[in-house]
Computed example of a mutant assay.
Amino acid sequence: MATVAGTGGRDPDRRKALLDAADRVIRRDGPQVSMAAIAAEAGITKPILYRHFGDKSGLYQALADRHVRSVVNILRPKFAEAGADLRVRARATIEGYLGMISADLNLYRFLFHRAGAEDSRTHSHMAAIVRGLGEELGAVIAAGGTVADPVRAQILGHAFVGMVHTTGDWWLEHPEVPRPQLVDTLTDAVLATLSAM
């Protein structure tokens, strides 16, 4: 059997099925779900689950990569849309992000709170993913001509990602705050900053 890059020779279809099982049980039972419950959902034992991912950290990172890739694929075109008004792009991006984290609350809390708190490698991995989003947004800001200095564009990209991420985290604990109000406030902050450049 040929080795598949990035999977340690494991069957990628089997890994996908195991990640699907992890998604199901986390969404259903919440972020504190046990590794034994994930294995049971997949119809295997915990050692076999770990064997497919190396260890618990490998499973966490595989889940993070899967879901962050989905987030990036949805948000990237919203902010980078050519010809669209900056306010429209910023608002669509923020709205899209908040919609995703609130729709998948258990999974979000599993990845950003539980997994990172339990495992230092996963914490570093998640931090690198967030940094990567900041770098990508900084490149979009620079390419759009809104901010001529690429260093300033990078600073702003990281600042905006951090602001939306941490404010979104706060908002999940304050469901009494209407999402449109949060989206408008964050959009105003982004636009006010960019217009001052």
Rank of each mutant, 00 (worst) to 15 (best):
T3D: 15
D13A: 10
R15Y: 07
K16T: 08
L19D: 04
D23M: 06
R24D: 04
V25H: 02
G30V: 00
V33K: 03
I38Q: 03
A39W: 00
A39I: 08
A40W: 05
A40Q: 12
A40G: 07
T45L: 10
K46Q: 06
K46Y: 05
F53Y: 02
F53W: 04
F53D: 07
S57D: 00
L59N: 02
L59K: 01
Y60K: 14
A62Y: 04
R66P: 07
H67T: 09
V72W: 11
L75K: 13
P77Y: 12
P77L: 13
P77Q: 14
F79I: 09
A80N: 08
E81H: 05
E81A: 11
R87N: 06
V88I: 13
R89M: 03
E95G: 15
G96T: 08
G99A: 13
G99L: 07
G99K: 04
D104H: 07
L105D: 10
L107P: 01
Y108D: 01
L111A: 05
F112G: 12
A115L: 07
G116Q: 03
A117W: 05
D119C: 07
H123R: 12
H125E: 01
M126R: 10
A127M: 14
A127S: 12
R131D: 11
A142K: 05
A142G: 11
G144Q: 07
G145M: 06
G145H: 09
V147A: 09
A148F: 07
R152M: 04
A153C: 05
Q154I: 02
H158I: 10
H158A: 14
H158V: 11
A159L: 13
F160W: 03
G162W: 02
G162L: 11
M163E: 08
M163S: 10
V164M: 09
D169H: 05
D169I: 03
L172D: 09
V177M: 12
V183T: 04
D184R: 01
T187S: 02
D188T: 02
A189P: 07
V190M: 09
L191G: 09
M197E: 06
